[in-house]
Amino acid sequence: MGTHVKNITQEVKKNKALFVMLAPAVVIVLIFMYLPMSGLVVAFKNYRYDLGVFGSEWNGLANFAYMFNSGTGWLITRNTILYNVLNLITSQLISIVIAIFITEINKKHFQKVTQSIIFLPYFISWVIVGVFVYNIFNYETGMLNTLLTSLGLEKINAYSKPGLWPFIICAFNSWKWCGYNSVIYIAAITGVDAEIYEAASIDGANIFQRIRYITVPCIKPTIITMLLLQVGRILRGDFEMFYQIVGNNGQLFNATDVIDTYVFRSLLQNSNIGMTAAASLYQSVLCLIIILIVNRVVKKIDEDYALF
């Protein structure tokens, strides 16, 4: 312990300015994020309003039971992870491809206009996406079925086919986030030293080689950071997205329920603060475990890419 203190004081002396630069962020995070964290104990308590978080009695793991007592815990955990993995892969991949394509376009106006347009879906809230989804897929008057009948094909009752929904959700997710994520990649690509490209074209590299040997390696750190950041939320479902697209339609739940939607529905009737905290703690702990493993693997491969 003594050596640690010594090490720290030494380090502070050596990099005083750096510590000063770090201080505001540390203080803000400590006050606004760490201090309220003490409330997590409520996950193990039978919360009473008159006793407060710390005065309430402990009740062990009882708050966690509702997630698991009918076997749904496993299903919703699995769904959450699968959706996140699927969404992660598709949306990042599409964003990267779009970013590369857009930066390769020479016509500046076309480039700017399309880039702006692709950003538009980000502004369309999930409430409205939900309206669109219903207007596309509803059986009687939906756009899809109107199209199918006009082509002389048979109507599809999408709401009775849960298997379709992972794809629908995934498609809308990619659609919504594609512009947003591609901005990060576009910024990363534009940050690449233009001289490298010039040198490459003088060497006679074709466009594919340029992308493969220059662009992709240059944005690799960004890609890995984005992936790691997303992995850190692998057990959190985008509640608004699922809730607005699927809503109360029980037919689809087995294929679309994630932890967040299940918890929301379960606690609608009794607003149990302890149970809400329990679910969130469960997600956090699993996320922590997964991210520690993934980060360690990344570190083994290349230390520079690790998150911490």
């Binding site: 964290m37 008159d50 407060g52």
Partner: peptide
């Protein structure tokens, strides 16, 4: 963590 706990007990997080 211990800091948050101390702060938590100080603040009481709900005035029981």
């Amino acid at each position: 963590l211990s800091m948050t706990l101390v702060a938590g007990t100080l603040t009481g997080c709900g005035s029981g």
